[in-house]
Design a protein around this nucleic acid. Structure first.
Lengths: 143, 143
DNA sequence: GTCGTTGCAAAGCGTTTGCAACTAT
DNA sequence: ATAGTTGCAAACGCTTTGCAACGAC
C-alpha cells in the first residue's frame, strides 16, 4: 500500500492529518518487511527532526488500530509490518540468527492441523518460529 | 526435578552453592508451568529479603546455561520453565487470553511439516502460538 | 471553536552493568 | 588464597503518562 492510500484510510476514519503523522506513515509504508519502533523513530526523526518518541508510539498504535499495521513477536521483540503483508511466518534460527519465511500456503497446512486437534484457530504470523536453519544443522552445536 | 537434584547439577558443574542460589533454585523448581523473572524475584525476596534483582537475573542465566531452565516467549514476554518440561507448545488466545497446550506428539507432526518444506528444524516450544480459541470463535469479534 | 494531536519532561518497567566486598571452596 | 558470587547503585533501553500548548478540521 502506498503512503497516499494509507493517509486516505486515516482521513476516512475521521483522523487528522498532521505533518508528523504524514512523515510517520510515509516512513512506515516505505519500509519493507518488519521494523521495530525505535528504528521507525530514528528514520522519522532523520526526515523530520523534533518528532518525539511519544508521538511515534502513539501514531503506531493508531495505525494498528485502523488496521494499517500489525506487529509480530520476533526474537528481539515486537516488530511492525504492513497489515496487508502479514502473510508469512517468520522462521528465525536460534544459532545464527538467520531469518527465513514460510509462505501462507505452507503455513495453512500447519494451521489446519492445529485447528483439527484443538479447535484453536492459530495465527502463525503473530509469533516467529524459532529453530535451527538447515545450514546450522550441519555445524557443531555449541563451540 | 527436585531442588536438591538441581543443586547437585550445579555442584557437578563446579558452581558454588550460596544461600541466595539455594533460595532461587528452590523457588524456581517448586513453581509449575511458566513464570517470569519479576515473579521469581518477588517469591525469592519473600522468602529471603535482601536478594537483589541482579542476583536473580544472573542466577537465572546460570540456570539456563547449565540446562536446568529454559525460556519461552509468550504474549507478555519471556517466561521460564523447567528445561525438562519444555515438551509442550503454548497456544494463547488473542481475544480472551486463555492458554492451552499442544502436546509434543501433536507438535511433532507440525515440526515435521516445516522440516520437510524448509529443512528448518523448528522448536515450537520457544515461541507461543497466537490465535483464537474455540470458545472465542463462537463470539463476536470485537465489541 | 472543538477536540484531536503534539512536545515536553518525567516516570515506569524490566533488565544489565561496574565495582568493591564478601564467601564457598 | 582464589575465584565465583553478591549487593549496591547507577544506568540502560524501550515505552508510557499527564499536562499544557498547538493546530487540523
Amino acid at each position: 500500500m502506498l503512503a497516499t492510500e494509507a493517509l486516505k484510510v486515516l482521513k476516512r476514519k475521521g483522523l487528522r492529518m498532521t505533518p508528523q503523522r504524514q512523515a510517520i506513515v510515509t516512513e512506515v509504508m516505505r519500509s519493507k518487511g518488519h521494523i521495530n519502533a525505535p528504528a521507525i523513530a530514528a528514520r522519522v526523526q532523520a526526515r523530520m527532526p523534533g518528532v518525539t518518541p511519544s508521538t511515534i508510539y502513539r501514531t503506531l498504535d493508531v495505525l494498528e488500530d485502523v488496521g494499517l499495521l500489525s506487529h509480530s513477536h520476533l526474537e528481539r521483540g515486537a516488530e511492525y509490518h504492513h497489515a496487508g503483508e502479514s502473510g508469512h511466518v517468520h522462521l528465525t534460527c536460534s544459532r545464527c540468527g538467520a531469518e527465513d519465511d514460510l509462505s501462507m500456503d505452507e503455513a495453512e497446512s500447519l494451521e489446519r492441523l492445529v485447528m483439527k486437534h484443538k479447535g484453536f484457530r492459530p495465527d502463525l504470523t503473530h509469533f516467529a518460529i524459532s529453530g535451527v536453519c538447515s545450514r546450522c544443522q550441519g555445524r557443531p552445536a555449541k563451540g
